[in-house]
């Protein structure tokens, strides 16, 4: 089931949802959900907005999100740009290097296939054809607030992927 975790700002019920989210991120990831960003040929406007998330006004770290340069440490992959053919291999390798559970967030109109509609020699026409995208954040570029909401939606998707650990022995059968 997919839930939109943050209602619109005019909704008076924003506060309890935000508290639940904070508790959810805290419980699942010990207040440390790590984000890896990959630019597949964007104009850098999306990167500028993503960078603003770490600035004092938005202060992403207060919610337990952090950026990491290593895909091995990342829980969430943020992809910008239309998916250029030159970056396709790097993008797939980054996704493969990330441990499960992981979510992919496509950021901006280019990544959503809104700008370059068709795949051609240069681009894949968005990243939706390259990776299984879980959350799409529209905008050109999306504002940091929109990115924040998208990240919170992604946490909901990540929460769905967590399975309780199961004790297993090779060759043993259930009683």
């Amino acid at each position: 089931m997919t839930r939109l975790l943050t209602p619109s700002p005019s909704d008076p019920a924003v506060a309890p949802t935000a508290d639940q989210l904070r508790a959810q991120v805290g419980r699942l990831f010990g207040r440390s959900l790590y984000i890896r960003t990959v630019d597949t040929g964007s104009c850098a406007a999306c990167e500028s907005e993503i960078r603003l998330l770490a600035a004092p006004h938005y202060d992403l770290h207060r919610l337990g999100f952090f950026f990491t340069p290593a895909p091995r440490h990342a829980d969430l992959l943020m992809v910008t740009g239309p998916g250029t053919t030159g970056m396709a291999h790097a993008l797939r390798a980054t996704h493969a290097a990330m441990p499960d559970p992981k979510v992919v967030v496509a950021v901006g109109a280019c990544a959503l296939g809104g700008v370059y509609r068709q795949a051609d020699d240069l681009t894949h026409g968005g990243v939706t054809g390259l990776l299984p995208v879980d959350v799409l954040i529209p905008g050109c570029p999306p504002s940091p607030l929109a990115l924040l909401q998208g990240l919170l939606v992604a946490v909901g998707r990540l929460a769905e992927r967590i399975e309780p650990a199961r004790f297993r022995i090779e060759g043993a059968e259930a009683p």
Partner: peptide, 13 residues
């Protein structure tokens, strides 16, 4: 006035 547009499905947009 709606900036919270993140979706989990392309068709929802």
């Amino acid at each position: 006035g709606v900036f919270e547009c993140a979706a989990t499905d392309r068709d929802r947009l």
